[in-house]
Design a protein around this nucleic acid. Structure first.
Lengths: 124, 124
DNA sequence: AACGTTTTTCTACACTTCGTAGAACTCCCA
DNA sequence: TGGGAGTTCTACGAAGTGTAGAAAAACGTT
């Protein structure tokens, strides 16, 4: 229950960037901007229904919450990106019977600066 | 390119448990054992071709290597489970623009014993 | 060299997820 | 109460996965 598709991912990224809840239309516009830079031929923007479908799926997955009170519904991410990512990492780690060995490998790969941060976070 | 299906996962787990390369038939038997405990009605064991299909797919994904020299081919995992898991964790972390914030959340969740291990691994 | 057995590859199908969006329905304002 | 904005329903194609039969290849034995 972890992986997201490309579009789902893009939507989550936008929701995470915005602190405020936003509408499907706004999202559609933001998505168009995002891709117009990448693509040469100005790809056709997505239909709003497409965005709404994706939002519904994300809602079902528990990643997105919607305000039904306002007329154009507004959507926002349930958890912050950091929390979500950290949770994912734990999910990956969780399935291992040898957590410490995994952590050892993991630590060996983070950058020096990050190692320093970790040291501070771990205290003393 | 990260997620595995249930059967793929089960096969990888068995390959990781075995240090030696093993055949599809052996795997089939091990898989049957594994499920017979869980399931009451002694589910029908998998066909060998099923196991072979899964092994081919895992090979294509670069997770499994096969010895073609011996007649019943023998299969083994390319990387250890720890390495694989650590890599997955990095993959998850990698997509974050705020790696340190993620690490902070992550660290906050590991057990005290693991935190101790991490402290040692980080040195001084 | 031919046969039967074992092993591997090919082909196939059902089911799920995801991107994509039209059709149909619901709301609300003028 | 009619029309436009918004939402839900329904649908379809592509990809990935579990599953395995059919066909092909390889090998040991006579």
């Amino acid at each position: 229950m972890a992986t997201l598709g490309d579009l789902e991912r893009a939507v989550m990224d936008l929701l995470w960037e915005h602190q405020e809840a936003i509408t499907a239309n706004t999202l559609r516009d933001l998505l168009s901007q995002r891709t117009s830079g990448t693509n040469s031929a100005e790809a056709r923007p997505l239909a709003v229904t497409t965005v709404l479908t994706v939002l519904s799926r994300l809602e079902k997955k528990g990643l997105v919450e919607r305000e039904r009170s306002t007329r154009p519904h507004r959507y926002c991410a349930v958890t912050s990106r950091e929390d979500h990512t950290a949770e994912l990492m734990l999910e990956v780690l969780g399935s291992a019977p040898d957590r410490e060995a995994v952590l050892a490998r993991f630590i060996g790969t983070v950058s020096a600066g990050e190692a320093e941060t970790l040291r501070k976070l771990l205290g003393r």
